[in-house]
Amino acid sequence: MKLGIIGTSEISRLFVQGAVETGCYEPYAVYSRKAETGEEYASHYHIRHVFTKLEDLANCPELDVIYIASPNSLHFPQAKLCLSAGKHVIVEKPGMATSAQLEELFEIAEKNHVYLLEAIRPIYNPDLAVLKEAVAKIAPVHYVYLNYMKYSSKYDAYKAGKNPPVFSPEYDGGALADLGIYNLYLCVALFGAPKSSKCFASLLDSGVDGVSTQILEYDGFNAVLTSSKISVSRSPSEIQGENGTVTLEGPTSLDAIRLYTRDGGETLLSTQRRSSMYFQQKALARIITERDAAAYEQACDRMRCCIGLLEQGRRQAGIRFSAT
């Protein structure tokens, strides 16, 4: 598939590297507001075309799929433009700010016979199946703690009075949207949609959250999901069951999954594989090229659930974002 790219950030570079490794994509065109930035990016991946007008990228007839890695609040209008032009879209997490935006895009995608997919690595990681098997062994589950707390490289700039997108309500920044979304997706992948959800946050002066805690209620247990852009956690994520405990280092790459049995046994279950980006890009390409309607419907249902929980959490915690 010929791939168009919106955004030249580090996550965009990692996505394209993984896409090239799969052999399923040909990076063909990139959009950047500044021609020199786009040309520098294109030189790394032998990309043929650099566009400085978004409409030109969306309407490029050779493109099959467009990957969107712009600031969060731009996902909706950019995806709408590309879907309306008849292009499949892969959008970085979080896909959208609100459920209403998401449903509008699904309608446009259906009308134009294309797919809208979200790049969310743990869902397509083969070790997710390993984690599910481990959780089944310790069942019934009684408590879940998932955390992704990482000091942002942009936080010092924010404290110095600058306005990096990740800490700006204009761009739908904050810990919950940037990191907490991984916790949400992993929890929903393991246990399904919760009965209820409540979110609390420590807000920065900008109006976005530096730290957030979301509590999901399930039958028989609660899941506590924490995220931070202004501090670092040294604690692993943990799933406690009646017959043991499962830990992992993080919700993105599912590193260092360990099973602790109730009698004191310990087993490292993670395997050495290719990068989680590789598996994500491979899976997304397969869904699109094979027109796997069942897998696409499952992906859409996950997006509906998790974007809904994200939107609800922001409102409950008073986190400012552009769609409000």
Rank of each mutant, 00 (worst) to 15 (best):
M1R: 06
M1T: 12
G4F: 11
G7K: 01
R13N: 05
R13G: 00
L14V: 00
Q17F: 02
P27I: 09
P27D: 02
K34A: 09
A35K: 15
E36G: 03
E36D: 13
E36V: 02
E36Q: 10
E40Y: 12
A42G: 04
H44T: 03
H44D: 02
Y45V: 10
H49K: 15
L54G: 04
A58V: 05
C60T: 13
L63Y: 09
I66S: 02
Y67V: 08
S70N: 10
S70C: 07
S73H: 09
L83H: 02
A85S: 15
K87N: 08
H88N: 15
K93E: 09
S99C: 10
Q101M: 01
L105T: 04
E107N: 11
I108F: 08
I108V: 14
A109S: 12
V114Y: 01
V114N: 00
Y115C: 03
I120V: 15
I120N: 03
Y124V: 00
N125E: 12
V130F: 02
L131F: 10
A136D: 11
K137S: 15
P140D: 10
H142A: 10
Y143H: 14
S153L: 12
S153T: 13
Y155K: 08
Y155S: 07
A157K: 12
Y158K: 07
G161V: 09
K162G: 04
P165N: 01
V166Y: 03
P169V: 03
G173C: 09
G174N: 13
G174H: 06
A175H: 03
A175C: 14
A175N: 07
N183P: 09
Y185W: 12
Y185I: 06
L186Y: 08
C187L: 08
C187F: 02
C187P: 00
V188I: 07
L190N: 00
L190S: 04
L190G: 06
G192L: 01
S196N: 14
S197C: 13
F200A: 13
F200Q: 13
D205C: 06
V211M: 10
V211L: 10
I215S: 05
L216M: 05
Y218L: 04
Y218A: 05
F221L: 08
V224M: 08
L225K: 03
S227A: 14
R234I: 12
E238C: 15
G241P: 08
N243K: 14
T245K: 10
T245Y: 06
T247G: 01
L248D: 06
G250E: 14
T252N: 15
A256M: 14
A256V: 10
I257S: 03
I257Y: 07
L259N: 03
D263L: 09
L268H: 11
R273E: 15
S275T: 15
K282Q: 15
A283S: 14
A283L: 00
A285G: 05
T289V: 13
E290K: 04
R291N: 13
A293W: 06
E297P: 01
E297T: 12
D301G: 00
M303V: 04
I307L: 09
R315K: 15
Q316C: 10
S322I: 05
A323W: 11
